[in-house]
Amino acid sequence: MGIRILLHIMVVVILSPLLLGITGKTKAFLVGRWGPPLLQPYYDIGKLFRKGNVYSTTTTWIFQAAPVVSMAAVLVSAIFVPFGSLKAPLPFFGDIILFAYLYGLARFFMIIAALDTGSSFEGMGASREAAFSCLAEVVLFLDFIILALLSKSLVLSEMVEGNILSSWQLFGPAILLAGVSYFLVLLAENARIPVDDPATHLELTMVHEVMVLDHSGWDLAYILYGSAIKLFVLGALFVNILVPFHGLPPVMQTIVFWAGMIVLAVGLGIVESCMARLRLNQVPQLLIGAFVFALVGLLVVLIKGV
């Protein structure tokens, strides 16, 4: 069981920056550029690992601990999500709650690290992050409720594996709605375009970027790596929810899963290039929209008779 955990983590550590690379490539391709090479995120992280650190005088140990804790939490959360034929190594009844609260832990440490630097820009980012994540977490839980009601179990992998072709006939719309609202949560959690622009450098508009303004060297590397892993893990969960590949033989499952991941990365790139960042007071409306989608999904499940 230990080896399967190690294998799982190795897959996540190795492949997650690739996802960012594919998204970057699609965004460049759509505007007619060749864009950075696929392995560009690896080069960035490698470069950062070789760089020195600059620490502000006002910061305490929390500033240095936060990147480590957030990276570790995200890594550990990967254990619960099955990757295609790779079954989740350590499932247990009620692991979705630990899954969600691990992200809460990571977010909490990132926020207080931002406040630790004592600059108004980090504080701005932290308060926005706190506000949006509250709503995102609620939508996430609503999606979990729908999945739990469908699969009658609280183990993440079983909830997801219950979603085979036959369940689509009866609860198709519910799963679709859950998928869409989950996608919006994905965008909000990973600071993709409609909620927050990862590439911008204008402090007043940023959310995630401005929280990591003061980080450098190894801390920044951990943060970048962590956000890549987070995108990968949540993306994997998205693919598991939406694509009913669990009934197929294992070889087919792996192929369909990885194809799904690539399609997801490309999809993200497309969404980012054809949408602009929303104004900050409209982001809650977006998340409330996602909440309503999920709610309709729940009603459908209730009406159809659970």
Binding site: R50, G52, N53, V54, Y55, T57, T59, G118, G217
Partner: peptide
């Protein structure tokens, strides 16, 4: 690696 202290 070099580590320095600076203003935020």
């Amino acid at each position: 690696l070099p580590v320095e202290k600076a203003q935020t």
